[in-house]
Nucleic acid binder design. Sequence first.
RNA 1: GGGCGCAUAGCUCAGUUGGCUAGAGCGCUGCCGUCACAUGGCAGAGGUCACAGGUUCGAGUCCUGUUGCGCCCACCA
Length: 1197
Amino acid sequence: MAPTNDQSQHALPKTYMPSDHERRVWERWDAADAFHADPARVASGKAEPYCILIPPPNVTAPLHLGHGLNNTLQDVLIRAHRLKGFETLWMPGTDHAGIATQTVVDRRLKEAGKPALAEHKRMEAEGQNGREKFVAQVQAWKDEYEARITEQLKAMGCSCDWSRQRFTMDEHCARAVREAFFRLFKDGLIYRGKRLVNWDPVTQTALADDEVENVELDGHFYFLRYPLVHRVEPGDHNPVTWDELAQRGYPGAEEHPGDDEAWIAIATTRPETYLGDTAVAVNPSDPRAKALQGLFCQLPIIGRVVPIVEDEYVVKPVRYGGDENDPKAQTATGFLKVTPAHDPNDWEIGLRHKKAIETGCSAGTAVINVMAPDASISDKHGWEDVGDAHLFVGLSREDARSKVIEVFRAHTLNDNHPLLEEIKPHRHAVGHSYRSHAAVEPYLSDQWYCRVTDDRLRGSAQRAMKTSQRSSPTHPARPDHPADGALTFYPSRYAKTYESWHDNLRDWCISRQLWWGHRIPVWSRSTDDSAARLTPEMRDRLVLWAKKKGERVHITGRDVRTTPQEYLRDHDVDDQFICLLDEPTADDVKLLVDAGFTQDPDVLDTWFSSALWPLSTLGWPHEEPAPTAADQNDLPRLHPKQIDRGDSSEIRSIYVKRVHTWRGFIGEHDQPSGDLIEKLLPLRDRSQNSDLPPVLAYQLYSEKTIREHGDQAQPLLKPDEIQGATDLICAVAIKTDEPVELKDGPLEIEPFLQAHGFTRQPEIEPGLLGAFNPTSVLTTAREIITLWVSRMVMFNRYFLAEARNGPIPFDDVFIHAMIQDGEGRKMSKSLGNGVDPLDIIHSHGADAMRFTLVQMTTQTQDVRMPVETDPQTGKNTSPKFDLGRNLCNKLWNAARFALGMLGTGGAPPSASIEPEDLALVDRWMLARVARATRALDEAIDGYFFKDYADTCYDLLWRDFCDWYLEAIKPTVKDSPAQRAVLRHTLDAILRVLHPITPFVTESIYETLRNVDAPPIEGLELAPPRRGGLLATTGWPVASPDLLDDQAEARFERARSLITAIREIRAQHQVPPKRAIAFHPSAELLESIERDLELIKTLANLETVSPDVPDAPTAAFTFEGVEHRLSNLADAADAGAEKERLAKELADLDKSIKNLEGRLNNPGYVDKAPEKLVNQTRDELAKKRADRETVAAALGRL
RNA sequence: GGGCGCAUAGCUCAGUUGGCUAGAGCGCUGCCGUCACAUGGCAGAGGUCACAGGUUCGAGUCCUGUUGCGCCCACCA
């Protein structure tokens, strides 16, 4: 063998220092493009795709340990599949996280004493571009945090395809958002609605239902009295007396003095909303309802008269027939104040009784909003009959509540009954904004909604779920439609969350009154003011404009679907909406502004762009065919589809792989096309005729041809056609940034194109969508199953639908556990119990962190991680990470030892090695590798991450280090075959561990890959595909022939014997160095003859012979027979021996009793499987024999 | 109010379809400075599987109930 490189062994430090390796390894991966996925390999059938889209982290803050876990798991899947030969794409990116980021930046600006959101809003109102300036601040924040997040992910070793990183507000995503919005809008799935929304009075935006967190609070029930009156004109007072009520048959009326004014009592938790009451409701089956028909209530102070309506929704008090078991019935008065503008239920009641309320309520309307957007009481937002209630105006919600109570307490009816009847404590859930944590106000507001309850969205999401995971085989709403998808949750219990979310779905409020987000691409024109109606001329201009835009603009109104022409002609509608697919040009804007339109100031809910993630990141809506692999060095043919249809004065471009494609429009804007053509034609000719690789290609189309022929359009080729055309679209592909030599000197192509009005926009990669959507698995936290998973399914299916249901964006959804601290609390900034992944990477290394996290990932919903604060650094850490660090160190040292044994650059490989020619321990080791790879395959397929880590751990530590390396120490230097097994086993271990601990394995592989050894028959270890990197090698494939049952059983037997001997050694406190003598029975000696060297090595035996010397010995039982050891110590310790034997005897007695009991049970013998019963009998016989031997030994002492 | 989950060694957790004496890591005890690794080796102690019933030849595992935690959902009378 080659000289053992002792120097190199000693050059390696005894301890694995992650910081010495992680950067170098990362740079090697990066330099080799190791993680770049090529859709062409999928398209050409050379590789199966495997794709994961990162759940884009919010740019609000750096990543926390939960992200660390999630992304580690994804990387494990990605790296394992990359090794398994899949074409693997892990798409990275970040989320703009609208409300969250805007809130954080606002807060930071305030803390820094800089102009914050409020100031910017004022600037905007004053025409000083406040919006733009504020968004720039948020953008700067985003840039900083996106960079930090990227750095964190890279530090963790995440093998994303970093060349394709996306952001939910970048141009690709914006493009997808516009397309999606436009299509939904056109298809009637987005509409404008005025209704109650969850309003956050602090950030002053609407929230979706799922952005509201319910918090249990101690509140009160306030019982208020409303006097009953006859119909009166406002200001009049015509009370109803109890006598009158008694005559009308009102139960209980006689309990009151007959001349007194009668009242009814309502119970509320929010007395301040009484200012907006427009009715009082009673259950029609309440015995009092009939007597009240035709009567009214008069609201104190305000003087508003409101009708009494009958509605089944109202809970009857127990006394009047309510359900005793209903807690509501126990506190209910049977009367419900109806405040449609400030309570969702009341809103519904208001709708049901709209007419009756409008005619009965003295305000003449069913809806009275008494609050400003900051939730203070206001008479400027729909409240007109303020009356004597001015004292409330301007108060906050909380102050208004106290004031109302104060006033009701002070006012009395009949001089002795305060209007405040009672206050009872009441604990109830109150919605709070998940961002500002302010109590959410149900607030009347005009918002955009996505009609997710439509079957095209909700239905398709429900049908997507695999039948076996459903609680009902079909969706209730469409019993005739069975499942048509294979959406599967791991663990399966989360399927229920998904299912029930859809059952209770309501339309999704998608507009947010924020500045940070995708602006809603709708221009609207309110025609409330009749003077502002469209002039016929303006209408004609708009119609013409819309006609020219064709399919790229959609005009409609509130809940009305007509053709644009019809729509604009109709002067009765109150709102007009124009949705544009493309960013409007300056001309468009001018026209729209002239016509009185303004762009909607709102932005879209963050989740709208998140829902498009599987589409936008993969290039949708540009669906372009993948280039074939052979084309890679050529310029692509520029397909007309790549050229925007419609308004072509807009200039667009794309990249195709690393080829930059530019698009421009020639022949408008007084731009002389001649110059461009003159320059371009020779360029193309040069490219086509030269031996040099082509650097530029372009094609010219007439806009008209593209309009008429779409994808079938042919480019213009003849010079005269080109020169004559006035509507040329030019698509240019360039392959270099270098100047190109022309006759008249070098031409810098990009500046040249720019000068001609071309702009370059980010690349769209052909074929990504086709190759990688559907993706393979989504790995995420359970809290966003509803927010995100469902919506991705809906949108993917909707937008990719050829017919009814498009593909599901992923079949598998893995929901990982939540990391809590040692006390089971969520990790959070406010508790100070969070752990920063970078801190762990610094203290323990990325691999250590990853291993620990993977090892913790079981199928439970929470995992706990005891958090400790390092007293020196003040940083949080956890002792759990030592596990991972220790494992890396163990691997490092095992490799150090192995490499020392192997040397480097050894003998060239000869013929392959047949396993049957190998020593027992080698065959055993190979069998362990074979068994482990099988277990690991299963673990990966079923998302059993802990099993994966544990299997690796056992293979490396228990099998390879504890047994194999120890066993081969005396023999490996002289056995080339054993060295081959050592080399390849280590190689296989590196490969299977690589998905969890990529850095240390890659570091070791740098050396190991240069060590040659003959291959072993049945163990396939594919070489690296790129850059000599372990990350690009192949998964170890072990043939079933390596599963050697006999070798394993034989080794196990030797191992039991070794363990038995070691036990005696420990019992007698024999120092490890001391070699002892073993005296087996003659039979045992004969049966272990072959493996004697192995046993001697591992049990540290000096001699083995059946002859027991005349010296102190210790006895032990193996396979029911007594054997002896001698030379244990200079003096025998009879006491310890006795103690040990006594304990062994007791243990044996216990299990004998247990086994006998079982066999004496006739039920067991009759009913249990025969095999099991026989096993029990054998066991009992063995134990009895052992017992006899032990008892005899004990007797002799 | 509805749904889901958890309770196993001092700590953190495994324990697939019920089946030999319930496992791992950390911690603990003993021996070890040994020439891959003390971030290590060998050996060991430690568990009435929350509680009460039930099904079964057999229950940590299945069923019912109880207790204690945790999470999600639900239009706050």
